[in-house]
Amino acid sequence: MSRKPLRECIAQRFEKESLTPEQLARLQKRLLRTDPVDTDVATDPGINAGAQPSAPATRFVSKHYAMLIIAAALFAVLALPRIWNQDINLPESIAQEVARNHLKMKPLELKSSSMAEIAHFFAQLDFNPINSQVFPLGEKRLLGGRYCSIQGITAAQLRYLDAQGQLVTLYETAYDPQAFSPLPLTDKGEKPLVLYAKGLKMTIWVEKDLLFVSAQAEHNEDLQ
């Protein structure tokens, strides 16, 4: 077997690895939807040494509007038929994404059973996380939360422990019918959509203009 300088060998090892086209497209789509939060608090000021003052918001916004217009025009011309087909399967795609995240059980960024604390933690979201009237687990079973995303849109992930000791994940994000396709509006008496993904029961509904997705094991029918 041929031997090479260590540096070259390591570099080649990494060059073989790349994001899949789907991953790359998802990240780039997310980056196009940038919506800077109106706050003066940097995520981690400690690593922002030498930072420059914020770029003017208008420049930031106009740049992204231009990019969005170009992207929208391209989609309209090239991919509209595909988008229609994808919309039909969007709830399934949402369920798959949330199920995948639920199974990963990434560490909570905030551990708290107080919805007020949770809401405060998620201050950088452009919506206010709330207790759902549809979701049966209350604050007493709340464990905490972390930031996440659904279909590239930033969301709050809340974790609960049900009466059977199983972890249940609830996602909340601002509901955009165009991004998420029409989904059941429980405020209008519509029943939540129930799907199965990766062996999990996924429930999707819209309540008070927020999209909710819960993920739980199938046997947790009688959550209290």
């Binding site: 990240l27 995520t43 690593i47």
Partner: peptide
């Protein structure tokens, strides 16, 4: 996942870092 999480955090910050690549690597 790590990259996605870091980019989400990057998008939430409002100050432009001196080096974006270094900043995201740090996150």
């Amino acid at each position: 996942d790590l990259l996605q999480t870091a980019l989400e955090k990057y998008l939430r910050q409002t100050q432009a870092p001196a080096s974006t690549m270094r900043y995201v690597r740090k996150i």
